[in-house]
Design a protein around this nucleic acid. Structure first.
Lengths: 157, 157
DNA sequence: AAATAAGTTCGATACATACCGAACTAATAG
DNA sequence: CTATTAGTTCGGTATGTATCGAACTTATTT
């Protein structure tokens, strides 16, 4: 294939996209590098070199990714270094399950708004009710959707 | 009802929540104020006073909210001012429909990662494939979910 | 024990951007 | 035709935070 884009540009693009979706640029670069490298394991040190970042930034970034279960640390006998790889059997649905918390917060926010109103059935109150119902709907439906994904994934194994 | 929280605290809380969900604090305050005020229409000027914000901030904020269709401008005969209210018949599903763009971007990102790899069927390639499939699944399922919401809402009218 | 290696932590920096203030535009009023 | 009102625009500020650099920790090697 005739790649218009090289690996390094791809890694930077991953950084921008992951930043856009709420993580940090460096976290995105790490995922990007793990995606395109042909090595099975990448050392802490290799990240600092290939991503041109400080040890401290790599340290906090791999911790963030590890706590999200997106990457997994690995060690080798007779080797002091820590290596990383994309987490095997990562469950993608969990990335959304964690984010559904904001849905109930939005629901509660709109419901609470109604309680401040003198007229609890006017246009504004109706607007707030519909807003709250939308977020409640989403909060109820998304788990089912994620279950469906997990079940579907299980079948193909 | 015995409100532990007053209106002003509620408005600030709206600011923080909307900020958390990707908008700005001031935009959240505007929604919050429109939620709790008993006035049908709120003038530009009233926002600056009650939210203690500059005209420029209110100007950009109401523009943002107007472009999202969340609020609607209103004018009165013989009155030069612009008033605002929560948009009647706002379609809540659109707020998510707009955000689904990131899903296809994530899908494309993971697919592109595979193309850089020498081994296109190893563990990493499989990881990328599953990631891509997850985002494709979401991109496919969410419109249906939003349709379901819209249909359900239509029934109750 | 001294030196090296592998990460961590924490104060400082640099960058992005929400918000402000002042100058400006356009329309109406006196 | 000047003054006022209503809002916009744009350069600057200030706040939050991702990233950096240096000091520190802990373990290993010589």
């Amino acid at each position: 294939m005739n790649h218009i884009q090289n690996r390094q540009e791809y890694i930077e693009e991953c950084g921008l996209i992951m930043e856009q979706s709420g993580l940090t640029r460096m976290v995105g670069r790490i995922i990007g590098y793990l995606a395109v490298t042909d090595k099975e394991l990448v050392s802490f040190d290799e990240f600092t070199e290939v991503l041109q970042a400080s040890k401290s930034t790599i340290s906090t970034s791999v911790k963030m990714l590890t706590s999200m279960n997106l990457i997994k640390a690995a060690t080798l006998p007779g080797d002091r270094k820590t290596y990383y790889r994309l987490a095997p059997d990562y469950c993608w649905s969990q990335i959304l399950r964690l984010k559904t918390g904001i849905l109930s917060i939005m629901y509660a926010m709109f419901i609470k708004g109604i309680e401040f109103r003198i007229r609890k059935t006017d246009k504004t109150a109706q607007w707030l009710t519909e807003a709250a119902e939308f977020y409640k709907f989403m909060e109820q439906e998304i788990p089912g959707l994620l279950d469906k994904w997990e079940a579907q994934k299980q079948l193909t194994k």
